[in-house]
Design a protein around this nucleic acid. Structure first.
Length: 487
DNA sequence: CAGCACGGCGCG
DNA sequence: ACCGCGCCGTGCTG
């Protein structure tokens, strides 16, 4: 019994097995780092100008809400000198400053009145997104949130990425990346770190290409700056709901396993089981499915009713909808309780992790990767509960991370064979549950099939072909010219 | 000027 | 008071 590379499923701490797993993906990581990914600098330059204009306008709008008698609280030192000359001081709030936003929203405009705004660690009222979403009635709040989105995307990506790009000169074999390319290009080569995350995940820095925007409309425009060079395609393959499939397997939850065996939809299943939607009715996209999705993904992290509530408030706003009457913290509490009650094996499995954390001071995943959890012995309740959530989360996240390392190891071998046959596949990025490669257009479909197949068989015994998981593992594949959703 | 903590937020 | 990361700007300190 063995997976690719002789990896075992010991189900108990196993350092040697994990060492082998971690070494498997190093060759591909080395190739990824050297290849880098091409980026469209002129396009980003345009975005920078446009984003800057949007920010300036919003900053003016926000500043116009400052009460006249409070203007002096927002004068910064560089403009204050004008006072002596008797000229009018141009007062603008620095919308990047949480302190200034806090003063404007809470001290001056009192937008939080009647709302339950929680303080941050240091005791000040939080101006975070989750809190501001509760005060959206006041028009200035929406402006602040909009400003934050443009600002984040501009500073962290649009303006930051070009500074890290390296120039690749024209050449049959570029000395930088060893990648044959006809046109000169700029490419980003982030460092891929293998020993950073407590969960065994890979992380990335300078830049971290695992955090390139994708969720928002504007984010998609940033992501479009990543391009496949002329004549090439991106092939991106990801596991479908791998963490939920792993949770089903690890907890041996019969109802979740049934859903996946029948190629069903877990979110709909949750609507029926925990929300009481009759089995012959189709769940409503917003009333049922949105919440079901949130709980399905949140449950493994020990989400609270408050957390779920705030999350759903944000979901409704993101879809331009009013908060419905039935959405309360009480409702969320019952939802979470019903979820766990209808899937008792999962509740059981979580309790097993808590037990391990308390008894052994550690939890471990399917491959034997172990994480110490000293927090569970803390004097402080908050810290203890933090430890329990970590213990609960680890096996799922860590097992899923192991799956990705397995496919990276196996694909690297496959790609080397293809290379010998004249097909050049260049792995570019690992993104937690997916691998992105660059390949000549004519081979994109072939490579997509090869990758999908490798992903789907990640848990198969490499000698017998038997699926060692209690659920089928599925994958999705996309072929694109830019790193964004097509059309 | 560099380094740091903090609040905040991008991704899975 | 939802897990895991890395990175931004602010505001303070040495």
């Amino acid at each position: 019994m063995a997976l690719f590379g002789g990896i075992q499923l010991p189900g108990k701490p196993d350092l040697e097995n994990v060492r082998k797993l971690d070494l498997l993906c190093l060759p591909m990581i080395s190739r990824m780092t050297r290849a880098g990914v091409a980026i469209d600098l002129p396009y980003l330059a345009d975005l920078s100008v446009e984003f800057g204009r949007e920010m300036a306008e919003l900053q003016r709008d926000i500043s116009s809400y400052i009460p006249p008698d409070a203007l002096d609280r927002f004068v910064d030192a560089s403009t204050a000198e004008d006072d002596a000359t008797g000229r009018a001081i141009p007062v603008e709030i620095n919308a990047n400053s949480a302190d200034q936003i806090r003063v404007l929203l809470y001290d001056l405009l009192r937008v939080h009145l009647g709302k339950n705004i929680k303080p941050t660690a240091s005791g000040k009222l939080s101006t975070g997104k989750r809190q501001l979403e509760l005060c959206r009635e006041h028009p200035v709040v929406a402006k602040v949130l909009a400003y934050r989105e443009w600002s984040k995307l501009k500073s962290a990506f649009v303006d930051a990425l070009p500074k890290l790009a390296r120039f690749h000169p024209r050449g049959a074999s570029c000395p930088l990346c060893e990648l044959p390319h006809d046109a000169p290009t700029w490419r980003l080569h982030g460092d891929i770190l293998t020993t950073r995350a407590a969960t065994g995940r890979l992380s990335m820095k300078k830049p971290n290409l695992q955090q390139i925007p994708t969720r928002s409309k504007i984010g998609q425009r940033v992501r479009a700056a990543f391009i496949a060079p002329p004549g090439k395609r991106f092939v991106s393959c990801d596991f479908s709901q791998i963490e939920l499939r792993d949770l089903a397997h690890l907890s041996n939850c019969s109802s979740m396993i049934d859903v996946y065996l029948n190629d069903g939809d877990l979110h709909d299943d949750t609507c029926h089981r925990a929300l009481g939607v009759p089995w012959d009715e189709k769940p409503d996209k917003y009333k049922h499915r949105m919440g079901a999705k949130r709980v399905n993904f949140g449950i493994q992290n020990g989400t609270t009713e408050k957390g779920l509530y705030l999350q759903l408030v944000m979901d409704f706003h993101a879809n331009g909808l009013e908060i419905p009457d039935w959405l309360t913290e009480e409702w969320c509490k019952k939802f979470i309780a019903d979820w766990l009650e209808s899937r008792p094996e999962v509740q059981n499995y979580f309790e097993l992790q808590w037990y391990r954390a308390r008894r052994y001071g550690a939890t471990w995943d399917a491959f034997g990767r172990t994480r110490l959890i000293p927090e569970v012995k803390s004097m402080h309740r908050r810290v203890r509960q933090e430890g329990l959530r970590q213990a609960q989360n680890l096996p799922v996240t860590s097992t899923a991370a192991g799956h990705l390392k397995l496919v990276m190891g196996e694909l690297d071998e496959t790609f080397r064979r293809l290379y010998d046959g004249g097909i050049y596949v260049w792995p570019l990025l690992p993104v937690h549950d997916q691998v992105i490669v660059e390949v000549e257009e004519e081979w994109a479909d072939t490579v997509g099939v090869i990758m999908s197949d490798c992903f789907a068989k990640v848990a198969h015994d490499k000698e017998t072909g038997e699926n060692l998981w209690r659920v089928p593992i599925k994958s999705d594949c996309e072929i694109t010219t830019r790193w964004q959703k097509e059309e």
